[in-house]
Amino acid sequence: MESAIPPHLQTTRSRHKRVPDDYQPPYPSFVARYKPNVDRVVMAYFGVQYRGAVPLAATEALAEIDRRLVAADAPSHRDRAHYVDQAGYANEVSVAYWDDVARFDAWFEPAREAWTGTRREGIGTFIEVLRPAVARHETLFSSLGRPEGVAVIADGMSGEVQEHAYWGGMRDRIPLSQTDAMAPGGNPELVRDGARLRVVAHDNLCLIRSGQDWSDTEASERKLYLDDVEPVLREGMDFLRDDGLAIGCYVNRYMRVLGADGSISEKSYGQSWWRSLAALERWAESHPTHVRIFGAAMKYLSTLGPSAKLRLYHEVTVAAADEQFFEYLNCHPKTGMLAAVETVTA
């Protein structure tokens, strides 16, 4: 049994884990392992937003970002997903990952100008970037063999880890939690740069991407997931999308991953920005919407046991203030972190 925290990031704890040292989790889970010389990763979300049928400007913008995502200094991994937000706008989001900040910096500025520097008729564009130290980041996978998200750029996966299957495991997997409460500091502020709107958030902002992959399931398991689990998951995702601000969730997106040809895959993920890790933990541990998600998932897994083919994963980051960048052009006022500013200034 390994610790989720790699040896080179382990330190003398001043804050204790939620479980004793001899804790044995009831089922296996795994985490991504980066090379020890990787001290920072980059996760960048490039979104295009529109109403109704896909306008030509959106198609052209997506083709532009596709070209840049395979150019010099491009990311080591990228994927794209689609969702409809609380205001009824369709959004397509390309997510890109780097394990070399210098390479990202060389790539980013011209890409930023091309994406949010030019207003396009009928669409909005946005950029949301975190560049966290790996000590502020954790991942978790229910199985090996198919990494997703930031884990694709890791060196590999761990063996079975101890810190999971209990409330508090998410925090215990983040190396910084050994010595730091990671409490939020300050409030989001809006900065206007001509037509562009930037949000300066605050210290210890939390991001989670939590995904499901049912592409390997056979007919009976797929039906069980889509009939009994996914509707409960969607209910919780819709709650966070529509009413999450009251509990510290600035924005939530329940996304369907798109294939290389633009088709809808049998993968989804929720992606949300939270005021703090503590706020995310409170929702996970006690809010009725997540209690129902957890209950449906446990019933599903207990019914199928080791034969379950559903793959689950997540990545969680608690970012320092200087590790964040949020910029929006021609987007509606509840887009992404603009919703956080609207709430603070209302």
Rank of each mutant, 00 (worst) to 15 (best):
G186I: 08
E163P: 05
E189N: 08
D228C: 08
Y166C: 08
W214Y: 07
V229K: 01
D203H: 10
G169T: 12
D203L: 12
N187W: 06
Q212W: 14
S158Q: 00
E160T: 10
M157V: 12
D227V: 01
R173Y: 09
D193C: 06
R198G: 01
R198N: 15
P184W: 03
L207Y: 08
V191L: 13
G159H: 09
D228F: 06
G159T: 12
R196M: 10
D216F: 10
E221Q: 01
Q178L: 04
G186R: 00
H164A: 07
H202S: 13
A154C: 02
G186Q: 02
M182V: 02
S177E: 02
D228E: 10
E160G: 05
I153D: 00
D228N: 10
H202N: 04
G168R: 02
A181G: 09
R234L: 05
M170S: 12
R173K: 05
E189V: 10
T179Q: 13
H202D: 06
C206N: 09
Q212T: 10
R196N: 03
M157W: 13
D193R: 15
L176H: 10
C206T: 15
W167G: 10
G156A: 06
I208V: 15
D228T: 07
P184L: 10
Q162D: 05
V150G: 07
G156F: 05
I174Q: 02
V152F: 01
T217W: 06
V199A: 04
G185A: 11
L226P: 00
G211Q: 01
R234N: 06
M182A: 02
Q162H: 11
D172K: 04
E221F: 05
G169K: 07
R222D: 12
M182F: 09
N204M: 03
M157K: 04
G159V: 04
R209T: 06
D228S: 10
D216E: 13
A165H: 15
L197D: 14
V199T: 00
S210F: 11
G168P: 04
G211A: 03
M182T: 03
L176W: 15
S177C: 02
M157P: 03
P184G: 05
N187L: 14
D216V: 05
A195R: 13
G169S: 08
R196Q: 13
L226E: 07
E218K: 13
